[in-house]
Simulated assay, not measured.
Amino acid sequence: MSVNAYVRAQKVAATPRSTEYRLMSEITGEMIAARDAGLSGVKLAPALHRNRQAWTIFRNLCQSPENGLPDELRAGIISLGLWVDKYTSLVITGREAIDELISVNRAVISGLSNENGGTPA
């Protein structure tokens, strides 16, 4: 099977949940790599920016009246998104460490994988 055929098959089989899982895993991996490389403050900006963008998108999607998630879950995601935005600024300015952002993302990744009994397809 060619790589292009594999990519097409993966796109067809992907669910929103599996896409979110892969995105959060990738972003969290980038933040861990940056931390483990000894980066701090402004040098973490590329990884932090991508994380902030993802959480802003999640927050905006949850604010939409068309969003089918339960209200309580939507409110929780919006709240987390706001916290990520504020906390990211503290990390960039060197007042906090990146570890809390990594922990939040790991909890979300765990939730995305556990709801259906394993890693999403």
Rank of each mutant, 00 (worst) to 15 (best):
I92W: 07
D85N: 14
N67S: 01
L44K: 02
G81D: 08
T19M: 07
S40R: 09
S40C: 02
L101Y: 00
A54H: 04
I78H: 11
E66C: 05
M24L: 12
L90N: 03
T28V: 14
E96S: 07
E100N: 05
S103Y: 03
L48G: 09
G68C: 06
S64W: 09
W55T: 10
G38H: 06
R50N: 14
L101G: 02
S89V: 08
E30Y: 04
A47C: 09
I92Q: 06
V84H: 05
G94Y: 05
L69A: 11
I109C: 03
S18N: 08
G68Y: 00
S103I: 07
T19K: 08
A34K: 04
S79H: 13
P46T: 04
F58L: 12
E72V: 15
R35L: 10
R50Y: 06
G41W: 05
T88Q: 07
L61W: 09
I92T: 00
Y21A: 05
I92L: 14
L61K: 12
L80C: 09
N51D: 11
G29E: 04
N105F: 06
E26H: 11
F58Y: 14
A34T: 13
T88R: 04
F58P: 08
S64D: 14
R52H: 11
G41F: 04
I78Q: 13
T28C: 15
G41R: 03
I102R: 13
I109H: 02
D99M: 10
N67L: 05
R74V: 12
S40G: 03
M31V: 09
L80E: 13
G94P: 00
L39Q: 08
Y87K: 01
